[in-house]
Nucleic acid binder design. Structure first.
Lengths: 375, 375
DNA sequence: CTGAAAGCGCTTACAG
DNA sequence: CTGAAAGCGCTTACAG
């Protein structure tokens, strides 16, 4: 502004405001930031001029001068994945409460891009970086991650992760995947199933590995072993794996897809192939993303408090770091039996089972009267 | 760094790198940015030192010195809304192609928060701001928006909107809501329906108003008038409106929910009340968010190229602005008939209708052999 | 090709 | 309470 510059490009600066208000830069700054007491008349004048000129402070200059930033970074695999979308809701809300701006990036599961984004966020001096979603079991990648994250943290940057590889020594919100999957397996055993299949994603994803291990572990306790079909970690992956499963002989009576998103694909595959759920095959997922209650049949799943997980991760990242070691918040899953699971063909509905251990993996009792089983 | 500072907080600066490499600041800068030719040995040295020190440039300093930024801002109502999620996918992909960082904010439909975010993005000197989702018909709000947006654009900031109020004179990606809804109405009339209801959100949202107008307009051409039920612009709003609708006597044979998200709620309401879709009532939505093909029954809807809309908005914002006036890209909707709609009870399935105008509103022919009707 | 220096737009001790 | 000045960490003409 100042000298009425040419076409666009020009910004009103603090200096413009100060000059026009007849005060020093320092005073103008103090008024606009409420940093210190300023005589009322000067205050008014500065405020009026700032409004008149539609002054917008330059956040870069502020960040540089004060070495602080209002931005936090969030890295996920895909914004449009409903699992992430639900978590991000909690993140966004909490960020807003703290007057923070969120920089959000989708990696589309490209490890290089992930590292690139971290570098960008580091350059932006983001106050915190949140990594959401399962990491890889990959040495080279771990090293590269550490090479970005370590200097960032050393310089005061905060990092928190949701459902991530444990190799990262950072504050973590960790769903109890093993326990949740095991509880689900037991609930399905209680329904009378004995022949299981699991639809998994790549086992190099820790989430996949943990859920698979929990499920098969609980089955092993009953002397059973599921057939395992691996597919892409997406809706289409679930569809494809389910279609393949239909060629098995004999068909399993119960299918566990390691995520709801995969289960959605599986459900549609079954429908497209005329397979009745749960009449011919029972189907269960994991996560309880909002949409699954609207499917027909509604999906049995292990509910995770997704919104809250996002909120907690954000809060962890905003809290003072613990000097010595990283914090970890474990989030229990809760088995929710819906209409997509039923006793296997030919088996009568179970009598109301004697309550054995009516508690979630973390010991929390299930809400009374809800359609949930938690053991 | 430099003098081995205390615990954290310290960043490696360009000066550290230059010093250690025995070159000037300018040379170090040139090497790291590839701005100019630098003697090979110096180049190597700078690069090696930068890597060794894990140097990360300060993006704020860069932005300040070069007055440019790699960040763009995106404002939506709710990241976790699948409609927005689908659009944002295109945005994120395109941003990544251009090596841009996306700052994403959810307003949760709070006008004040929207304006606040724009101010923040303006302060960040975001290269562009994208507004995604229907705006309000509200004078005061329009003025406040303009007060932020105008100075931003005058200073060279770019703005593009998706499906927004026309009062904003900015580049726009605009779905043809009217035409799409009208085409849908005609397709449903062709099925034999004569008694319609519309489930709408608040009519102050332009998207709602346009779709409602298009639908009722086409019905009026057939001498019909739908009953209109207003609810929240959400899944739960759709559920509630549908539940209310069930009390109507006689019940309509066909229901149009102005968005898929509302239609999802309606579908579940019908299921919960034991109403067969499409046996007793046909149901259609608008948008074709990915999940609706996985519902049972799959939802008839008007498909919008959501991903592409996000991409186009991003591209518009990145292109040189047109001197005189704003650009507008109209996106045609395509009617997709799925199993959630059928002839009304008692009416036989229509003979294969003579093709009348087998074209989408924009004149594009529907893909051959697809299960779509487009007129 | 390389370097010294000015400048980007703020904040914040430091004096008054 | 107010102002002059240094400094945040870069980029980029301008000389050499």
């Amino acid at each position: 502004m100042g000298e009425q510059t040419g076409p666009g490009r020009s910004h009103v600066t603090l200096r413009d405001v100060a000059r026009r208000a007849g005060v020093s830069l320092a005073t103008a700054s103090r008024v606009l930031n409420g940093t210190a007491q300023v005589r009322a008349d000067l205050r008014e004048r500065v405020l009026a001029v700032a409004a008149e000129l539609a002054y917008a402070p330059n956040a870069h200059a502020q960040a540089l001068a004060s070495s602080s930033s209002k931005a936090i970074g969030v890295i996920c695999h895909d914004v449009s994945d409903p699992y992430f979308a639900a978590i991000s809701r909690g993140v966004m809300r909490t960020a807003a409460e703290h007057d923070l701006l969120v920089m959000l990036a989708s990696t589309f599961r490209d490890p290089d891009r992930e590292i690139e984004y971290i570098a960008m966020l580091r350059a932006q001096r983001a106050r915190a970086i949140l990594l959401i979603g399962s990491g890889f079991e990959d040495r080279a990648w771990e090293r590269a991650m550490a090479a970005e994250l370590d200097p960032y943290m050393r310089a005061g940057g905060r990092v928190a992760v949701v459902s991530r590889h444990r190799s990262l020594r950072v504050d973590t919100v960790q769903p109890q995947n093993r326990e949740g999957a095991a509880a689900l397996a037991r609930a399905l055993l209680d329904l009378g199933h004995r022949d299981f299949a699991v639809l998994t994603g790549p086992r190099s994803l820790t989430t996949v590995a943990d859920r698979l291990a929990g499920f098969t572990g609980a089955l092993a306790d009953a002397g059973l072993r599921p057939r395992v079909l691996e597919g892409g970690f997406t809706r289409d992956g679930g569809y494809a794996a389910a279609a393949e499963l239909l060629r098995l002989d004999p068909r399993p009576t119960c299918v566990f897809a390691v995520t709801d998103v995969m289960a959605i694909g599986a459900l549609t595959a079954f429908r497209d192939h005329g397979v009745d759920v749960p009449g011919e095959v029972s189907l269960a997922g994991f996560d309880d993303i909002p949409i699954v209650a609207d499917l027909t049949p509604p999906l049995t799943t292990v509910a995770l408090p997704l919104d809250e997980m996002g909120e907690r991760a954000m809060r962890l990242a905003l809290k003072e770091p613990r000097a010595s070691r990283s914090r970890i918040e474990r989030m229990a899953g809760r088995v929710i039996l819906r209409a997509s699971t039923a006793p296997p063909p030919g088996v009568p509905a179970p009598r109301v089972p004697a309550p054995r251990r009516a508690a979630a993996p973390d010991g929390t009792p299930p809400p009374a009267g809800s359609a949930t089983a938690a053991r």
